[in-house]
């Protein structure tokens, strides 16, 4: 007989647990959805934390100056050869040999956003930006040159 009552109890317990489940899901059904609507919210509520790393950029001021002295520490710090600093040597007015940046090449398609380059940079010439919209159709477009055309290193103050 106890077997039978267990059977009935199992029945009741089971049905009860199912009903509790259904009540819970109905409760959530009546709640407001939590969805954020990209791209509708692109210019309104979309919040990207300031520290988010989406792409490496070189800081340029209004006069098209950057702070890169082409020392190549970032290139050394990079674990997977994402950065290539192309530099040239020139003679300044005093006749001293100096290095300056020609092209700061960066492969967005290989970057792992470890921040070692930014940490290593002694002049804060590079930083990570929030611009995450980088999807493209061609692989070549992900090889970027970070220094603006015609830019030069900011003169020392």
């Amino acid at each position: 007989m106890s077997n039978f009552s267990e059977y009935i109890q199992g029945y009741v317990q089971g049905v009860k647990s199912l009903l509790i489940g259904m009540r819970t899901s109905m409760k959530v059904f009546c709640q407001k959805p939590v969805t954020e609507q990209y791209p509708e919210n692109r210019h309104t509520t979309l919040h990207i934390p300031e520290r988010h790393r989406a792409r490496l950029v070189m800081v340029h001021d209004e006069e098209n100056h950057h702070h890169c002295v082409a020392c190549g520490i970032c290139q050394m710090a990079c674990p997977n050869d994402t950065i290539k600093v192309v530099s040239e040597t020139y003679e300044d007015e005093d006749g001293k040999k100096k290095k300056r940046l020609v092209r700061y090449e960066y492969d967005l398609g290989a970057c792992m956003f470890c921040q070692l380059c930014v940490n290593a940079c002694p002049h804060d010439a590079i930083r990570f930006s929030n611009d995450f919209e980088n999807a493209v159709f061609q692989r070549e477009k992900l090889y970027m040159v970070l220094n603006n055309e015609g830019s030069s290193c900011a003169p020392k103050k």
């Binding site: 934390p49 520290r51 988010h52 790393r53 792992m112 956003f113 470890c114 940490n119 990570f128």
Partner: peptide, 21 residues
Amino acid sequence: FEETTGGRLIQNYNVIGGVQA
């Protein structure tokens, strides 16, 4: 996570001698 570390999944937060920021 993202506010503090800048990453959602891959955070790069701990560094030798402390934390990134």
